[in-house]
Amino acid sequence: MTTLRLRPEDPADTGAVRRVLAAAFARPDVTTPPEVRLVDELRAGDAWLPKLAMVAEYGGEIVGYALLTRVRVCADGVNAPALVLGPVAVAPHRQRIGLGGAVVQAALEAATELGERLIVVLGDPAYYRRFGFSRADRMGLTSPWSGLGEPWQALVLPPTTSNEPPPPQGDVVFPPPWSKV
């Protein structure tokens, strides 16, 4: 029986994560997909949150990845913390068996446990809707990708206390590595 293990990325996993990203985002016109460089640069910066870089280990092999990193929501001089989901990847030989959904769900649960309130993503609305994401623009969130409409999405996580303020609204500011994607 093959076992699925979902866990935070360990520093020793860097090479395996790079291979999963490179295979999942492979294109004939580039040797290193931008998603690989994005994760490398995020890993080296202030937006990196080690407990929120999740891997899916299937049969002892790392085959899936979901990353949550820090972004800021800015409005009226206030800088509120939020997260961005991405990239999400599954090795091609293990796609379509639920590993992507499992590793995303593990990342969302880890964020909830850490008391995070808001996650944004740019991706397929039909896919991310199953996790509770909906249009970010309808939540008062803007970004360089707002003009894309439905793919610009957000998820409000449950509050940890009953008197917690509502999630922030405003312009979502991404760390510099995102400008290269």
Score class of each variant (00 low, 15 high):
G60Y: 07
L49K: 06
P87K: 02
P50T: 01
G86E: 01
L67S: 12
N79Q: 14
Y58D: 09
G45K: 02
D76I: 01
L67W: 09
A66C: 10
Y58T: 00
W48N: 10
L85F: 09
G64N: 07
D46H: 14
L83T: 07
V39M: 04
G64V: 05
A82W: 08
G60L: 03
Y65L: 12
L68Q: 13
V90E: 08
L52N: 12
D40M: 03
A53K: 10
A82I: 13
V39Q: 00
G86Y: 11
D40P: 05
I62L: 04
P87W: 06
E57L: 01
M54I: 15
D46P: 15
C74H: 11
R43T: 11
A75P: 00
L42G: 06
A75G: 03
P87Q: 02
V90T: 14
N79R: 15
R72L: 13
G64T: 04
Y65S: 10
Y58F: 04
D76Q: 14
G60R: 06
A56Q: 08
A89D: 03
Y65A: 05
L52S: 12
V84K: 02
P50E: 07
V90G: 02
L52R: 10
A75E: 13
A66Q: 13
Y65W: 09
G86I: 11
P81R: 05
M54C: 12
H93D: 14
V84Y: 00
Y65H: 15
R70H: 12
V39C: 02
Y58P: 00
A66W: 11
D40K: 03
A66N: 11
L68C: 11
D46F: 07
L38A: 09
A75M: 10
E41T: 07
A91I: 03
V63D: 02
K51C: 02
V90P: 05
L67G: 15
